[in-house]
Design a protein around this nucleic acid. Sequence first.
RNA 1: UCCCCGGUAGCUCAGUCGGUAGAGCAGGUGGCUGUUAACCACCUUGUCGGCGGUUCGAAUCCGUCCCGGGGAGCCA
Length: 463
Amino acid sequence: MEKTLRIKSILTEKPVNQDICVQGWLKSKRDSKGLSFLDVTDGSSLTGLQVIADESLANYHTDIAQLSTGCSIVARGQLVASPAKGQEVELHAREITVYGWAQPETYPLQKKRHSFEFLRSVAHLRGRTNSLGAVARIRSRLSWAIHQFFQQRGFFQVHTPVITTSDCEGAGEMFTVTSFDLQKLPRTAGAVDFSQDFFGRPASLTVSGQLEAEAYALALGNVYTFGPTFRAENSNTSRHLAEFWMLEPEMAFCDLEGDMDLAEELLKFLISDCLENCAEDMDLFARFIDKTLMAKLDNVLKHEFVRISYSDAVKELEKSGRSFAFPVAWGIDLQSEHERYLAETLFQRPVIVTDYPKTIKPFYMRVNDDNKTVAAMDILFPGIGEIIGGSQREERLEQLTARMVEAGIALENYQWYLDLRRFGTVPHAGFGLGFERIIQFVTGMGNIRDVIAFPRTPGSTAV
RNA sequence: UCCCCGGUAGCUCAGUCGGUAGAGCAGGUGGCUGUUAACCACCUUGUCGGCGGUUCGAAUCCGUCCCGGGGAGCCA
């Protein structure tokens, strides 16, 4: 196929008076006397390239005049400085070929703004819109930035398994993975006999790669895992997906302090990276999605995150004078309204809450010397709540075993995890970042279903 | 899963006290114009989310289910 220039590079490099070829989709067409203005996008940038097609083209009346939003074309011609306002350069077409038509009566995307709710019903086409296209580009950039951040710091990426047979990873309901014929389940004494299933035991989609990442942190030092994660929770909110992407770094020879430092550095890096490298797309969000976006991002970049212990946070909430719908008391987990008060009202910047009561946190978090709290940290962002949850891990075999017994976990399934403490255990720490949540924060998009291409939520799979 | 709100033309929505529906945009036709979400004129479009009920009569009232939105819980 003929080599074409991407519109993004045409708009930045402006190779005026050169013959070029572009391929893309029509965003709109405006007709004038004897010529048509085609607004062409190829997905490389928000701004499209204006292509001028005049009636001297052989197929002007047969093809060009019939073009409408969504049609795909290839255009060859000369790039020239534009005589009109609105664009610096434009392509004077010498030849235009139509790849594919898009009947305007049936093509769902119109030359106007659509609601995100509607666009969700055409998830396979919505990437062609300005806003969802911008989301997709920013998502890709953030993914790349994550790898860059960790690779620059000597972290190794570990591909942790998607299928797991750990029957409890301590994070919510799981999706079962089976090769059984569900109409004919083998049973012994009424119960399903998983010994006959594919893996010889119950298997699920992973709810976290953390435990496996720990194994490799205790081999390679610093690692991260970044991939799809599954939760079968019946969560119906703008912040939850059944399938989402999670980033989980894990560091050997690291305590909670180092964990928090890395998390803060990462979040600031990701925001800066987008502002620097996705300026055009970011401007779209700042203008049309959230007018306060730039101020919010600036606020995060400019300030040190507040670090406050759970115990002190509870004291702050108690003396706030606020009447919360849910009670505030030491030992009870913070509710959304409490987290929001801390991040949005009291401190008005990201807040890291540390050292939660051990009774409300998972077994793998390291018990502090007070024997009441664990070395945990949650990072709360204004507007979106918890964006990161992490901890120093319990590296002491005896304490870990005790906590697992307390939590009612079947030790026989976790011998490998306990081995990590039996053989050359070291202090280590890590955290989990919900990838879609950082995209939401960076773009200002209100619903998590609009920052992933094909969202999976209870009762709904797009495409 | 719980609470609240909503579902009317392809899209975004209006529809009063129960009397079989309307606007803007899109689309079509014509006109005009180096146009910028182009403009002007005319025209088309409906299982009023599904099912059941009340009523002479239901978009409107009641029940139920489905879907969407906001909030909560769970969490990332």
